[in-house]
Design a protein around this nucleic acid. Sequence first.
DNA 1: ACGGATCCTACG
DNA 2: TCGTAGGAT
Length: 677
Amino acid sequence: MPVARPETSDARVIAHVDMDCFYVQVEQRKQPELRGLPTAVVQYNEWQGGALIAVSYEARSCGVKRSMRGEEAKAACPEIQLVQVPVARGKADLNTYRSAGSEVVGVVSILAQSGKCERASIDEVYLDLTDAAESMLADAPPESLESIDEEALKSHILGMSREDGDDFKESVRDWICRKDADRRDKLLGCGIIIVAELRKQVLKETEFSCSAGIAHNKARSYLFSKLASGMNKPAQQTVVPYAAVQELLSSLPIKKMKQLGGKLGTSLQTDLGIDTVGDLLQFSETKLQEHYGINTGTWLWNIARGISGEEVQGRLLPKSHGSGKTFPGPRALRSLSNVQHWLNQLSEELYERLSSDLEQNKRIASTLTLHASAFRSKDSDSHKKFPSKSCPLRYGVAKIQEDAFNLFQAALREYMGPFGPKPQGNKKETWRITGLSVSASKIVDIPSGTSSIMRYFQSQTTIPSCSASGFPQEHVAVTPSASESCSEQKSAETLPAMPEEDITVTYTSPDLDNSYRDIDIVLEKDASCQSNEAKEFPTQSGTQTKTIGRKINNSKEKNRGMPSIVDIFKNYNASPQAKEETQEDSTVSLTSNRGNLSSSTNHSSEVNQEVEDRRDTEWGYKVGEIDQSVFDELPYEIQRELRSFLRPNKRPNSGKSKSGDGSASSSIAHYFQPLKR
DNA sequence: ACGGATCCTACG
DNA sequence: TCGTAGGAT
């Protein structure tokens, strides 16, 4: 699973910042009355009071633990406040937490402007503060400061004996300011001050408290930010000096290490008889490689020594979006139309999130994947894996819904295999669906400032046929996108008709205002979705926009079903330098109900300029190289826009000035740009 | 090198 | 527990 990365440079300063019981804090910010009370966030309420997914520190001290049910929590702590995760479309809706998460990432990335910042999860970031720490050491080393921040003095310095009160803070100060310290430790000392300041700012800007680990690499900072915050208290920061690493690891239970909490960790315990990380040291690198393969073996050898060369990626946005739901036990889905109903819900949510991503971050996803889990009762291998399927992603709710359903049916046929779709003349299916999810991946940036492209995709979101005409439509037409790209290419073969119940399925489709309205559609009895004569939605009178994907497919053999514009952007974005600059293009949506921190003003011009600088040299396509038939199929506005992109007016190469005024300041404010309101 | 499918891991 | 994510193979 894990892979080894040799340590590249010696003295990095890496911080892992982790929000304390994040969902609880989000709810407490929304409902300040809850602050200070034992609180937990639960998801669903029906069964045993719902499942706890986040627990406040007050509740933890009452003995409430994550992965208790709501009722257990009430028993352990009668005064606990249980807040429910919002529900939308019949499923948990995590959007409020997601946007609070991007709010945090946005603030952190701005504060850490001088260093790389990586969104590690909804509430965690890694920071590479090496440069900031080095500049501080050069310009304003801690010992030169007249006073050290109180927050910094509260840090835990591992390996340092801990006494209470001022003595403790005094010794922290001494450690930070020690003149004869190892350079690596001095850098960590700077890291302490920087992170303390950053955490204070995050609290001020977002009202969320967080904990942090500061060390020389990701593995160490992660581990100790987790260990420390998991211990007892929120809002802690922990430093791992070089010299303390070995001893701390030596007695650390192996299962506590990231990546070793599961099967691999268990295997180490049982197969090698190991309990602590220190125990791993006895095994030679080759021995570990023999047991666990070359990659995992070397990784283990390294991690036992706290070595990890993994770099902090400058990525502030997620790499995929997914929407899923489980249907445990008796709630398992037993009919195709029920599956379709839920796929429609999930697809709707997914589309909504793709739309925001497009709007806010100018990104488009290009792959749609369907995952499901299932079992077949009353049969030998009742727990065969349900295969995943993917296809090119077409923008538009109805398209995603269609494609998802088609992917599902393809997967189901494969899953059922020889059993065939209709094993007995019985009424009910033999399969049960216990989980469904749709996800969108391979997300690429599109050049900013191309407004017509935005309009193009927006127009794609309207369903021309039914919403305008009001005619009931048979909506399960096969589209080339999903059906052709599914594994079974025997397109000529008529697929076995799936039994379909008479049922009213609610389709929802966005109208022009992006608000949703419901349209009831009665599925035909034999909605043998499977006629492979691709039925196109009747191209609607009013709509200019064409489904470019298909037409292009006809003229261009490869890339079936893939909107060519995605190809173009993909190629564009594949240019070597284009990425890694996620720092600057931090169009992270700072959709806070309080401050509106649009980070753009400062940066966007710079980004645009950069984009323009690369145009001529780094576009994967030159205008003449784009297949004319592809180009012609694009909406006129986009053609025009692309032409202007492809033939840029050359501008003087203004070497991207490293932001920062260069004025040396003795204040740490130098390392942070205060947020402007 | 790349992409689809599968598996594993982690966490609120 | 569920709903999401990321990474390795």
